[in-house]
Nucleic acid binder design. Structure first.
Lengths: 253, 253
DNA sequence: AAGTGGTCTAGACCACCGG
DNA sequence: CGGTGGTCTAGACCACTTC
């Protein structure tokens, strides 16, 4: 660091600790290696365990560490890039997308969603639950809200409620002409059910990707996908036609 | 499903607390209102201050609260949507973008950036610092890395180092034909300097948007923009042309 | 000076995982 | 069972803002 200011710097211990640990991770540890336990590390650095934990939390947030109760703290691999913005618009469930339908229920969506769908407050919609795996790990959980108008005639069928029903809702979507979509990304914390599916604790930081699908001049479906923020880097292929950079993993040399 | 499970639930206090507070915020508080101080709240709920703080942290992460040292905790306004993916590709600094050049230095970029630029490890590049304001608040800080090949003839000029120099680097970029771009979003924590510019504490959660700009068959520039994760919702206009959603008619409920 | 949130401590117990 | 990280406590002091 060129500019070490001494003026206004009572640098917090946990911040300094984080820096020290970060450098140690770079030079003295390899991916997957387990660190000494928290009590050991705390006493080694001469701080309280809570302070040490504050530093570890930061590093976990940045995707450098992975902590698992009952197991230990390990050095995390570099974040995996997960493609989110497919170059061409496509309905969820279209051939070759990365998602796997889990089940489907019918219920009233959260108000924020019903507002986007322009449905009544208590109007029920199909809620398709999907999950996304990458390299054998769950990286995202999605709730796809489909109003009846976008998947007509399904409430009558009463399909065997489950992935079969989910698939039929997705099939129904394909029949509409997708005219556009609209995406937003924000930080959130995992709800209990999402956390379970993502193999994290409730409240874990997640990137929430909200997508609106437009068809027939209205919002035909809304997807709310929550990605593990610690392990994922969301990539958007806004590129148009340049596509050279499909490097699945670039190794640090 | 109205089934409240009682089986495996020693729900953490801070989690329950967060839920209670969240509901209270919805019903009993208005945006901008200040909450009672932490010691007061903790004793009111019968928990230690640290536990109360854990709940507040979560709510702040979700953008529900804003805490400022020496001032207090206030109810945050809904996150503002900030446009990140302009429909058509454009160089940074093109007419009407939301950024304001701050200064410009010449230095070697972080290795991760030099790898994207395909420059040598210690090769120096122009580093333009820009900042982005919305509604009078700073929402993002950006470092734009421009290799000499993309802005030739500037190292000689030695412009009066500052926003003037920054502007001339940006002008140089406009002369190249932009053939594509490539974006990624991930969670990070604010470095000390970014934190200062964003009016947050170091380590505050940020959304890091990394953009590669392609021209002349190579990566002509790399932008690393850090957005305040608590106040921002990043929006991507992948839409093409659909853009308006009045509610033309509310579906009958 | 008074009041706020931010940092830190030194303990304790709990939930979970593995052998 | 022993060891891990996760939760929680009841204090203390510090940095900052405001009056």
């Amino acid at each position: 660091m060129g500019t070490t200011q001494l003026e206004t710097v009572p640098e917090p211990k946990y911040w300094h600790l984080k820096t020290v640990l970060s450098e140690a991770l770079d030079s003295e540890f390899t991916v997957g290696e387990v660190l000494p336990n928290e009590r050991e590390l705390a006493s080694r650095f001469g701080v309280a365990r809570a302070t040490l934990r504050q530093a570890l939390e930061q590093l976990e947030l940045e995707g450098r560490l992975q902590r698992r109760r009952g197991v230990g703290t390990t050095v995390a691999p570099p974040r995996m890039g997960v493609a989110v913005g497919t170059a061409q618009h496509a309905w969820p469930g279209a051939a070759g997308d990365a998602w796997q339908p889990v089940d489907c229920t019918v219920a009233a969506p959260p108000v924020a969603v019903s507002r986007m769908l322009e449905t009544g407050r208590k109007e029920q919609v199909h809620i398709v639950r999907r999950s996304r795996m990458t390299h054998g790990q769950p990286v995202a959980a999605e709730l796809l809200y489909v109003p009846d108008a976008s998947a007509p005639g399904l409430s009558a069928i009463e399909a065997p409620s489950g992935s079969a029903r989910a698939r039929s809702v997705l099939r129904a979507l394909q029949r509409l002409e997708l005219t556009g979509q609209d995406r937003a990304v924000e930080l959130g914390s995992a709800r209990a059910d999402d956390a379970k599916e993502l193999d994290r604790l409730p409240g874990a930081p997640v990137l929430v990707v909200t997508t609106r699908f437009f068809a027939e001049g209205r919002t035909a479906a809304v997807s709310v996908a929550t990605y593990r923020a610690d392990t994922c880097r969301l990539t958007f292929g806004d590129t148009g036609n340049v596509e050279i950079h499909h490097d699945p993993e670039r190794r640090a040399s």
